[in-house]
Nucleic acid binder design. Structure first.
Lengths: 213, 213
DNA sequence: ACGGTCATACCGACCAGACGGTATGCACCG
DNA sequence: CGGTGCATACCGTCTGGTCGGTATGACCGT
């Protein structure tokens, strides 16, 4: 099965190098050397350097979308489903930390049509996530005084940022961090007894205390 | 004052192009054309393309650090100070949205020493921010069941992510979004009434999984 | 069994061109 | 006259991609 091995080895090396040095700073020569193959072999399996990059995106997107669908299909109370979705995407992102680095850093290096494709598939994920939040809002669980798009951005930002600070060698296990970030997010969007006062007086908001149940 | 004008115009064009196409995909030729100057003029003011990129970082870092110091120097209750700091960094990031795009996307394109310099100055900001959180924790205001580094990452992620979703043309004013994100963050880190507090003796947060009750 | 044919997998020298950077020169100013 | 501010032509390097060629092996008619 040399077929699989070459393509896989190239992909592996590419992710590693792209994450470490960036897409533009990594030459095809470097990749094939790191993968232990030749340029000819690589161009036999990939149309272009861009194609190689897209393969990384494709794998990530497919994986996370599959997870999302599976969790939603499982059903259950909104809070539970949302919790599971959040934890999963964080854990998955930790499992694929180098891919994540490349993902957010090099998206603009893709050719226009592929960039659109990535955007489209990310929006699919986004929309399903948004539907979950909306469901929770209709159930009175989550606050409605802040636009839904802001609530969602607030969560995805955490996923996005992971590759900038999380280290697998650090003290925190991936499962723990996932629970913690999810908890922070859910605590933030939970509907509270009182409203939110915008401009002045940030201090008095503390008096409201938690709507923790 | 042609001196200032040329350098400024080049910087302006560079930010715009870097944000739109990425650093690596933007040639020096493109920059000088967009700025309405010649390559000779540009290389008279900047040592290299890298130098140009660093100038962008330098400006952002100086600005935000100055703001931070000013707000902290103003004093006041912890909650108020932290609130103001959060709002400010978000508003500033919105004012310099293209710079922000470049900032996070192209850091790895800087030469090693400059990358270190940027990291060093970011850490300065980070540490002052961490000190604020710690103060709030000692006052019993903020939860201690989650590592401080996670709390902080949770906030900076929002700042980081802004350039990926916020649009000045959108319905949300920059001040409003800043308040909303700040509120979400503060709601998340607030110590809950009956919840875990006191000394952090390790992983006491495991209870999160079941989702309330 | 066997020569021949064809497709697939792979090799690696080579190329066109783009890019960052420089060298040289000139105009203007104090 | 010297120095600053800039213009322009030019260069060496490096890169993505190509292309002619070879090795391997399955299949086939005889």
């Amino acid at each position: 099965m040399k077929d699989v091995n070459v393509a896989d080895e190239v992909t592996r090396a590419a992710v590693e190098l792209f994450a470490a040095q960036g897409y533009a700073n990594t030459s095809v020569q470097q990749i094939v050397e790191a993968a232990g193959v030749t340029k000819g072999a690589m161009y036999h399996y990939f149309e272009s350097k861009d194609d190689l990059l897209f393969a990384i995106y494709d794998r990530m997107l497919s994986l996370q979308k599959a997870h999302l669908d599976e969790i939603i299909a499982r059903g259950g109370p909104t809070e539970q489903v949302l919790h599971d979705v959040c934890v999963d995407v964080i854990e998955t992102s930790i499992d694929f930390l180098p891919e994540g680095t490349v993902f957010f850093r090099s998206m603009h290096m893709l050719t226009a049509p592929r960039q659109q494709e990535v955007t489209r598939r990310r929006r699919e994920y986004h929309d399903e996530f948004a539907a979950l939040i909306e469901r929770g809002q209709q159930e009175g669980r989550y606050r409605t005084d802040i636009p839904r798009s802001v609530l969602i951005a607030n969560f995805f930002s955490d996923v996005h940022y992971l590759s900038h600070w999380y280290s697998p060698e650090g003290p925190e296990g991936r499962g723990l961090v996932a629970e913690q970030l999810t908890d922070l997010f859910l605590s933030g969007i939970r509907a509270t007894a009182g409203g939110v006062s915008a401009s002045d007086d940030g201090a008095s908001a503390a008096a409201v205390g938690g709507g923790a149940r």
